[in-house]
Amino acid sequence: MFALPGLWAIFTVVAAAAQTARNAMQRNLIATLGTIGATHVRFLYGFPFALIFLGIVNAAVPGAAPKIHGSFLLWTTFGAIAQIGATALMLAAMKERSFVVTTAYMKTEPVLVALVGVFVLGDHLAATAWVAIIIATAGIVLMSWKPGAEMAVRPAILGIASAALFGLAAVGFRGAIRSLEAESFITAATTTLAWGLGIQTLILTTYLLVTDRAGLMAIFRAWRPSIGAGFLGAFASQFWFLAFALETVAKVRTLALIEVLFAGLVSGAIIKQATSPRDAAGIVLIVIGVGVLVSLG
């Protein structure tokens, strides 16, 4: 299926915005549901929306549904498990540090993702793309680690570990999408989303049934605030997967660094506080890196 040049960038920006809103909603659920419970919300309540998306795509997009095979299931399961761990670590970090700082820690992932994408998926990156990734990542580092400030080691480790797992999840899901012989990239992406969320829902529901049935019941009782997080999670993932279907993981995840700016807006850090020269320099580096990357097509 033909895709317009630069469409992956639009998908990525939409996904980043939706993910920022979802992360904020999930963070608010930690107090009542705990880290694992708040993690499960995005999967349990997102899965029905993924099925709706898949039904709409199958009805609207021409072509037969892709055949599910072993390689697809392996890639999807790998991505699903990595994403579960990444989400849990992210929420654990958010319990100890601010929303925007945790988001910044997590956005140290592009260089790692680029390396994994090259060696595991065979993605090709031009030298200019590598430069753009490094510049944008340097901007995140500049914003995140303030000179003279006390370094909170535990949330930093949690946030960076979360970033690594999110990167591995992205590689897994792109591998799954590419393994499907679908006539449309939209169908391949949406099929992968539905299977991924289904696997995640099964894993965490089973885990909570065995280890914490009271916690699982609490998730069901908190359905009102959880539906919004579930929808935004599925909506964000839909656009992430569409971007992964069209472009390398490294380029998608580097453009996703704009999520840090969105997080600043959500937390009020940019609106209510003056931007320091260091933060301004970091933002400039992010914008330059992302701008160079998008200009490459």
Score class of each variant (00 low, 15 high):
residue 241 F to D: 01
residue 6 G to V: 13
residue 78 F to R: 09
residue 257 L to D: 10
residue 267 S to T: 07
residue 276 S to E: 13
residue 278 R to N: 07
residue 109 E to R: 06
residue 6 G to E: 13
residue 78 F to V: 10
residue 220 F to C: 09
residue 42 R to L: 05
residue 248 T to P: 08
residue 257 L to G: 15
residue 61 V to Q: 01
residue 68 I to Q: 05
residue 142 L to F: 11
residue 213 R to D: 04
residue 236 A to T: 11
residue 29 L to I: 03
residue 291 G to H: 05
residue 257 L to R: 11
residue 84 I to F: 04
residue 244 F to Y: 15
residue 260 V to W: 03
residue 86 A to Q: 06
residue 256 A to R: 12
residue 182 A to L: 00
residue 47 F to W: 15
residue 252 V to W: 06
residue 261 L to K: 01
residue 19 Q to H: 15
residue 11 F to K: 03
residue 136 A to L: 09
residue 126 A to W: 00
residue 289 G to L: 03
residue 245 A to S: 15
residue 7 L to F: 10
residue 28 N to W: 07
residue 114 A to T: 09
residue 157 I to R: 01
residue 121 L to F: 06
residue 31 A to G: 12
residue 103 T to D: 04
residue 250 A to L: 05
residue 178 R to E: 10
residue 16 A to L: 04
residue 229 A to Q: 08
residue 85 G to K: 03
residue 236 A to K: 08
residue 279 D to G: 00
residue 5 P to R: 12
residue 140 I to C: 09
residue 272 K to P: 00
residue 31 A to T: 13
residue 153 V to Y: 11
residue 192 T to Q: 05
residue 55 G to A: 14
residue 264 G to C: 05
residue 117 G to D: 11
residue 104 A to F: 04
residue 206 T to M: 13
residue 86 A to N: 03
residue 157 I to V: 15
residue 72 F to G: 08
residue 279 D to T: 13
residue 177 I to W: 00
residue 218 A to F: 13
residue 75 W to V: 11
residue 155 P to A: 02
residue 248 T to R: 10
residue 92 A to M: 10
residue 3 A to H: 14
residue 280 A to S: 14
residue 135 I to E: 02
residue 49 F to Y: 03
residue 226 S to Y: 11
residue 172 G to K: 04
residue 49 F to K: 01
residue 79 G to M: 08
residue 181 E to F: 02
residue 254 T to H: 12
residue 248 T to D: 10
residue 87 T to A: 06
